[in-house]
Design a protein around this nucleic acid. Sequence first.
DNA 1: CAGAGTGGTTCGTATCCCGTACTATTTAGT
DNA 2: ACTAAATAGTACGGGATACGAACCACTCTG
Lengths: 155, 155
Amino acid sequence: MDEVNVLPQQLDLTAGLIRSSALVQDILAAASAEHGLTPQQSQLMCVVGDTPSSMVRLGALLRIGKSSMTGLVHRAEQAGLIQRAPDPGDGRSTLIMLTAEGRRANSAFRATVGERIEHIIATLSAAERSNLTAALSRVALTNQAPQTWPTEQED
Amino acid sequence: MDEVNVLPQQLDLTAGLIRSSALVQDILAAASAEHGLTPQQSQLMCVVGDTPSSMVRLGALLRIGKSSMTGLVHRAEQAGLIQRAPDPGDGRSTLIMLTAEGRRANSAFRATVGERIEHIIATLSAAERSNLTAALSRVALTNQAPQTWPTEQED
DNA sequence: CAGAGTGGTTCGTATCCCGTACTATTTAGT
DNA sequence: ACTAAATAGTACGGGATACGAACCACTCTG
């Protein structure tokens, strides 16, 4: 390989984490836009998933206040992505769930993100992926990272 | 309130990348707030660094349009973080540079972020850090990740 | 030198988030 | 049971952010 570019060969760990974080955020924003969603709407739908949830619960997962939830949910409802139902067990609470349209958009969004993520790590070997997966899992899980992306086990 | 959230032992690579990305963004937002900055202001100062730059250049690094730059720069100027000077080589252009106050805030912000990043990876072994650094560097550099954090070589 | 291109600003629009105040419902304390 | 405290959600005002289109001023090109 000819070292002819002016870019640094390697970043330090902090820079690598921050820049790859920004790269991921850009992917999420672009994938959202391609499906007619705002980043917050796609994130909201991801945390709702198949579990009807109160606004307080969703706000905790998204780490935004309840007054911010009102508008976010309202706009998502206007967009036909989610619907509300009274909580049978608590007269104060409303349960948020995806509409058919919301499920469709959410699936499409997640598929697109999956592809893009796969693409940016395409040059990593199987061993590197394995190491990266283990390291990032531990970082995310031991630091209570926001659960903004679904897994099989959780939720 | 009995949220039965089973914590998984390990996330897949996509979830690990996305959640650790969100974690990093939270760190950046919190560190910004602790120094009286908005996330965009701290990011702006990081890309300015010690290199007086035009708004177009900064907009390209931040990946926002020039009309968005106007307000961002204006608010940062009002906050005493940056200052503008006419570009001696181009009458249309203004050069943005940090004020003394901006340099101080930027240094403090970066120090705080460094500590927090160090903290979340505290459980990784030296070998794991080395692998993580190499993998994230390659991901960031081969995918033109936004240069939102300074390095020695660049800029 | 005229026309095209570039750097920035302005304006109108929309999203997003926050803190405070308020209503309605539920829960806890006595 | 009944009142007081806690909780779920909304309303409102305000600030930061980002966009596109229209526009001005300056620079570069042919």
